[in-house]
């Protein structure tokens, strides 16, 4: 195989910036400073502090008198990477793919329906679709658990009984628990994606569609050639945010299936619920912080990969 010659890009010469440009840059940074400091306070500091704690022996027996013990916690944390951890990692990847795929398709369809010109009561539909977002997640999840999936009082089993079918314990096995958690997660996450998609769709210049219609393009061609390429850069950041939110999902899975005192019998674990049960309950903050940092690095690697794909 011939090796292709790499094209070497000519190095750009930096032009000397004018005093006016320097002033603008100076003001930009000065105006951003409060936000940067706030981000430092709520985002950067906890990460750095967790990194620091992960190097110490902070646990119940050394709560306030902890010492730096180097990378010992990381060595122990790597022992957590057993079959259970790997299984949870694979399940989490599957969980993220399934949720994102359904979320993107469902949000696109619903946002497209909301953008039909002749649609009446558009605002009412939009409000209704945003409703899950307005409710606290904790309340919504427990309402789904008790109101819909509960084998004694849940709506699903009431329907099953009316239809003369055997009642089902929806959250007791891994597959049905996965499906139930996906449904609840979609219910909670769709409003955000619909809102972003709706905004993106509204930002498309209508003249593109008019020209395409004049050229004889059908709905599918218009969607593939105009809608999707145009909204892609707009929804891109939202998709990346949602991918990570879904990947590090805890509350939906934990509250539906793993909550202390209300376990359902399912062994469906995401990476975070697994590490919670196998590390965080030990009250060993050094060890738990090391695991958090490892998960953080894992997410950074995913993020880096996504960024590369986004660029390409």
């Amino acid at each position: 195989m011939k090796r292709q010659k790499r094209q070497v890009k000519p190095k750009k010469k930096r032009l000397p910036s004018s005093p006016k440009q320097r002033k603008i840059t100076f003001w930009s940074y000065l105006c951003s400073a409060p936000s940067l400091i706030l981000i430092g306070l709520v985002v950067v500091f906890p990460i750095l502090y967790t990194g620091y704690i992960s190097l110490t022996n902070m646990n119940v027996y050394h709560w306030f008198d902890f010492d730096i013990i180097g990378l010992d916690n990381y060595k122990r944390a790597l022992f957590l990477v057993d079959s259970g951890f790997l299984s949870a990692l694979l399940t989490t990847i599957l969980w993220t793919i399934v949720n994102m795929a359904i979320q993107l398709v469902a949000a696109f369809v619903l946002a497209s329906l909301l953008n039909i010109q002749s649609l009446k009561l558009r605002k009412v539909y939009k409000t209704l679709l945003m409703f899950p977002w307005a409710m606290p997640g904790y309340v919504s999840i427990l309402l789904w658990k008790t109101g819909i999936f509960n084998s004694q009082f849940g709506l699903l089993n009431q329907w099953m009984e009316r239809l003369g079918l055997q009642t089902v314990r929806w959250l007791s096995n891994d597959v049905s628990a996965f499906i139930c958690c996906t449904v609840v997660n979609l219910w909670l996450a769709l409003p955000f994606m619909i809102m972003i998609m709706d905004g993106a769709l509204q930002s498309i210049d209508k003249s593109y569609y008019e020209s395409a219609i004049l050229d004889g393009a059908g709905w599918f061609r218009r969607t593939v050639s105009i809608t999707l390429p145009t909204i892609r850069p707009i929804i891109g950041p939202a998709v990346i945010i949602t991918v990570f939110t879904t990947f590090k999902q805890f509350d939906v899975v934990y509250l539906l299936t793993q909550q202390a005192g209300a376990k359902t019998g399912s062994h469906f674990h995401t990476l975070i619920t697994y590490t919670y049960e196998n590390a965080f309950i030990t009250n060993n903050y050094g060890y738990s912080s090391a695991i958090s940092i490892l998960i953080f690095v894992l997410l950074l690697l995913f993020s880096w990969k996504f960024r590369l794909e986004e660029k390409s």
């Binding site: 840059t25 100076f26 940074y29 951003s32 400073a33 940067l36 981000i39 430092g40 950067v44 750095l48």
Partner: peptide, 17 residues
Amino acid sequence: RVRKLAAWILTLAVMIP
């Protein structure tokens, strides 16, 4: 100078907490 200022602000953002 501007880059230096940017570096200072970013350092401050991390140090202030």
